[in-house]
Amino acid sequence: MKTVQDDTGKRYLLLKRSEHASLVRDPQNGNECYVQNDRLEDLESESALETAAGCVSDPVKTLLTNVHDETTLGLLVELEERGPLGVRTLLDAYDFCESDLHGRLTVLTAAGLLEETEVAGERGYRVTETCGRALEVIRVDEGDEPTATAETSDVS
C-alpha cells in the first residue's frame, strides 16, 4: 500500500492501480473511490501507515506518541482532575523521585501536553487544552468497558 495525493492535495491510500484509474481509500472516513491516474501522484515522503493514522485527531496522536506508561497517563489525568499542582505537591502526593518527575514533566511540556504555571507562589504545571481534549476523547464513561470500536477510534 502507498500514499498518493490528488491534484487538490487530498491524501489517500492506494489500494489498486489499473491503466487509467486507481482505487483509493480516504483515511479520514474509509470511503473508497476511483480516481484518474493523471490526477494522482505518489508520495514517497509519507508511509501508508502514517497516512492511515491521519484519522486520529492531533490531540490524541500527541498523547499517544508521548505517553508511554500508565504512570505518566495517570499524572496527566490527576493534573486535569485536580487542576494545576505545584511541583512539591506532585512529589509529596505521588510516588516519584525528583529526577523522574522532572523528566516526565519536561517531556510532556515539550510535547505541548503540559504547561508551566505558578501555584501558591511556586512552580507548578497544568494540562494544556490539547491534553484536555485528548483525555476527554479517551476517557471511559462510568460503567462502560474500554473497547476499540469504530465509534471510539473515529475522532477528529
Results as ranks from 00 to 15, higher is better:
Val77Leu: 01
Gly9Pro: 06
Cys33Pro: 03
Leu101Gln: 00
Cys33Lys: 12
Leu15Val: 12
Glu80Tyr: 00
Val127His: 04
Leu15Met: 11
Gly124Asn: 02
Ser18Asn: 13
Cys97Ile: 12
Thr65Ala: 03
Ser45Ala: 10
Thr65Asp: 09
Leu13Glu: 10
Asp92Pro: 01
Arg126Pro: 03
Asn66Leu: 05
Val35Tyr: 02
Leu23His: 03
Val77Met: 02
Glu116Gln: 14
Arg126Asp: 04
Glu122Asp: 15
Val56Arg: 10
Asp42Gly: 09
Glu44Gly: 03
Ser18Tyr: 12
Val137Leu: 12
Ser45Tyr: 13
Asp38Met: 12
Ala53Gln: 08
Leu90Cys: 00
Ala48Glu: 11
Lys61Asp: 03
Arg104Cys: 03
Ala53Asn: 14
Val127Leu: 02
Ser153Lys: 11
Glu41Gly: 09
Met1Phe: 05
Glu50Cys: 09
Val77Phe: 01
Glu151Phe: 07
Gly86Lys: 11
Gly30Arg: 11
Glu50Thr: 10
Asp42Trp: 03
Gln5Ser: 05
Cys131Phe: 05
Asp69Tyr: 00
Leu91Glu: 09
Asp38Ala: 12
Ser156Ala: 10
Pro59Arg: 11
Val127Ile: 09
Pro59Asp: 10
Glu115Ser: 05
Glu81Gly: 07
His68Pro: 00
Ala52Gln: 08
Ser99Leu: 02
Glu50Gln: 12
Thr62His: 06
His102Val: 04
Val140Cys: 01
Asn31Ala: 05
Ala134Val: 06
Thr71Asn: 14
Leu23Thr: 03
Val4His: 02
Val127Ala: 08
Glu151Cys: 00
Glu46Asp: 01
Gly54Glu: 15
Thr106Gly: 07
Gly112Met: 12
His68Glu: 05
Cys55Thr: 11
Thr128Met: 12
Glu44Tyr: 08
Glu70Val: 13
Arg123Phe: 06
Leu43Ser: 02
Gly9Trp: 01
Asp42Gln: 11
Ser57Val: 10
Arg17Gly: 02
Gly124Thr: 03
Arg126Glu: 07
Leu14Cys: 09
Arg88Asn: 10
Arg133Ala: 03
Gly112Lys: 13
Ala150Gly: 13
Thr149Tyr: 14
Leu76Gln: 09
Val127Gln: 03
Asn29Ser: 14
Arg123Ala: 15
Leu15Asp: 06
Lys61Pro: 02
Arg17Cys: 02
Val4Thr: 05
Gly121Leu: 05
Leu75Pro: 13
Gly30Trp: 06
Asp144Gln: 14
Val127Arg: 04
Cys55Arg: 14
Gly83Val: 08
Cys55Ile: 06
Cys33Met: 13
Arg39His: 13
Glu70Gln: 12
Thr89Ser: 12
Gln36Tyr: 08
Val35Arg: 09
Asp7Met: 04
Asp141Ile: 07
Glu19Lys: 15
Phe96His: 14
Leu15Ala: 06
Glu118Val: 14
Leu76Trp: 03
Val67Pro: 04
Ser47Asn: 11
Gly9Phe: 04
Leu75Glu: 05
Ala21Leu: 06
Gly121Ala: 04
Glu50Pro: 01
Pro84Leu: 00
Val56Tyr: 12
Thr51Gly: 04
Ala53Phe: 06
Ala93Ser: 15
Val107Asn: 14
Arg11Ile: 10
Thr62Lys: 15
Val4Asp: 00
Glu41His: 08
Gln36Arg: 14
Glu50Ala: 11
Phe96Lys: 14
Val4Lys: 01
Asn66Ala: 08
Arg126Cys: 04
Ser22Gln: 08
Asp26Pro: 04
Ala48Trp: 05
